[in-house]
Amino acid sequence: MHEVSICENLVTTVLKELAQGGKGAWRLKKTRLVVGLLHQIVPESLTFAYEVLTKDTPAKGSVLEIRLVPIVARCRVCGWKGEIHDSLFVCGACSGGDLETIAGKELFVESLEVEEHDG
């Protein structure tokens, strides 16, 4: 469910971008998506939803490439910065818990790879 709703927004965004190239001028080959691990997305489910939702659209046949971004936090007390594993938001240096998430919440379309036809 989670992946489907996110994918609906993804496909809307992709189609809007494609339309900017003019009707049928761009053929989409690849969509590059960046997803932070905090979103707990299952890439396989997202890829499957992408295939289904693009089926009858100009984005049909394109590939979804997902780049997962690790969760990184910074300690507000001692300045430590590091990756967070197993949901444990604990400072790796001072063991404090006052951490600010600085990566891992990303959810955006980075780029599209299209083929432009002329002649």
Binding site: N9, E17, W26, F108, E110, L112, E113, V114, E116, D118
Partner: peptide, 19 residues
């Protein structure tokens, strides 16, 4: 007919419309 590959930078947040 030739096909030219282009990379389009998008950087669009998927929660944008909701937000």
């Amino acid at each position: 007919m030739t096909a030219k590959k282009i990379k389009i930078k998008v950087y669009r947040d998927l929660m944008g419309a909701n937000d």
